[in-house]
């Protein structure tokens, strides 16, 4: 199948699942019966290509993309999915940029009562807090927003690198999932492992990169955007597979602001 046809098929699948639910269409390969502990992303097409049905539990996932790529939306959807799987589950958001918008987090389906928002001072304190939250907090999922903010602070990146060797054990013990958000780096920097996230990439079990492709319009109105989600690395499947996700704005705010 040509890549254009593949993209059209993926787009059609995404539209149907967005409209009728994730279970409306499932790939045959998903019925293998092999399941790894995971949190579904809420986008079935993406779940199908990660190799574990979503993002893995007890492991690190790196989610990269620039602004308006949809990575934050995906992260919030993951928080909601992690909560839905069990009424007891609490999730966390390490909000280093202090820009979390509870109104929109809630619209993504997150139960705010079971969401802890951590706002430490960036740097070593944030990294230490990350470790403590995974160890003591009993969180099903912790989203760190973002690696860029962590690395920008003095000693932040160094502290994180020091934590990485212990992180695997921490995550295995806690059983929770850890998702780090990151900005994309130039491919040549990635290939040469010269970017600041390279050690985190090496430690990650899954790396997904998001990229906005086009706006979605209804007449003149902008109603969302279509983004490509590419699995750059997966411990369970060959990297490089991609799919399309559509992010449609939830227009439940008053008429004068449909965002």
């Amino acid at each position: 199948m040509s890549s254009a046809k593949q993209r059209r098929l993926a787009s059609a699948v995404a539209s149907i699942q967005q409209r009728y639910g994730a279970q409306a269409l499932v790939r045959g390969g998903d019925l293998n019966g092999r399941t790894l502990p995971h949190i579904a992303t809420g986008f079935a097409a993406l779940d199908a290509i990660t190799g574990c049905g979503g993002v893995p539990l007890a492991a690190l996932t790196l989610l990269s993309g620039r602004s308006t790529s949809g990575k934050l939306t995906l992260a919030y959807k993951l928080l909601a999915q992690a909560q839905h799987s069990d009424a007891q589950h609490t999730v966390g958001l390490l909000d280093l940029s202090r820009t979390a918008d509870p109104d929109y987090v809630q619209r993504c389906g997150v139960d705010l009562e079971r969401l802890w928002v951590a706002r430490p001072v960036a740097g070593r304190q944030a990294v230490n807090l990350l470790g403590d939250l995974m160890q003591r907090g009993g969180l099903r999922l912790l989203v760190v927003d973002s690696l860029t903010d962590l690395a920008a602070a003095p000693e932040g990146l160094r502290s994180l690198h020091a934590l990485l060797p212990h992180l695997a054990q921490l995550l295995r013990t806690s059983g929770g999932a850890l998702v780090l958000l990151d900005e994309p780096h130039a491919p040549w920097l990635r290939w040469l492992n010269l970017d600041s996230s390279q050690r985190v990439r090496q430690a990650a079990a899954l790396h997904i990169e998001m990229r906005r492709e086009q706006w979605l319009r209804r007449g003149d109105a902008l109603v969302g955007y279509r983004a490509q989600a590419q699995v750059l690395k997966s411990r369970w499947v060959q990297g490089g597979r991609s799919t399309v996700v559509e992010i449609v704005f939830n227009g439940t705010v008053r008429a004068s602001e449909s965002w």
Partner: peptide, 12 residues
């Protein structure tokens, strides 16, 4: 005790 008040809950 270690970090100060860093954990929050939000409400709409």
């Amino acid at each position: 005790g270690r970090y100060g008040v860093v954990l929050w809950r939000s409400q709409v």
